[in-house]
Design a protein around this nucleic acid. Sequence first.
DNA 1: ACCCAGGTGGCCC
DNA 2: GGGCCACATGGG
Length: 226
Amino acid sequence: MRKNLLRVFQLLLNEFGAQNWWPGETPFEVMVGAVLTQQTSWKNVEKAINNLKAEGELSPSSLNKIPPDRIKQLIKPAGFYNIKTERLKALTEYFIKQYNGSISRMQKNAAPRLRKELLSIKGIGRETADSILLYALDKKIFVVDAYTIRMIYRTGISKSADYDEIRKIFETALEKYKINGYSTVDVFKEMHALIVELGKRYCKKIPICNECPLDEMCKKKGVQNE
DNA sequence: ACCCAGGTGGCCC
DNA sequence: GGGCCACATGGG
């Protein structure tokens, strides 16, 4: 298991090159992006983020103050704008109330506690919470998404693991991995980004893994379809 | 005219 | 625990 995932990491890194995620100038921008990108292409998220930036609203204090209708207007291109506005408001309010809008204060707490806090916010689910922990706060938490689950099932690495089990599989397999100055956290960041890139290119729902770099692994494990 | 996107919560069984 | 649905815009 561990060996397989290390192999996948090297395969993907070699195939696609470093992705250097998460795009974003500040950790708070990463937090906002994590909500906006729920079930939404990054292209659309970029438009929304640029709108917020252009209006000078992409900071905890300003986002906390401006009227919901204004946020809706600005994030419209990212879709689900009513519900995402509520989620951004809730997240921002938490960040200000608990940590005075300070990333470094928030980082002082351990990952399990922060994860619990984030998950208690309505609209922040596991992937969004973990994205914030890994990419905004540099915590050693692996982010699992729909592509990751598909990949795990198709390669036969696991057939039935749920979100947290898959997260654990990756964390265990990758936590001691070090190469070329990649820290563990950097490997987690890069691996998730590479899996998304893989998914975007090859793991659409209909055809299975043809010409996918992992094809050989899929075949070897006898995986035919999703 | 479909299908899909870097999910989540609510409701049902 | 799992299965289905609404949420919405923009690109293939």
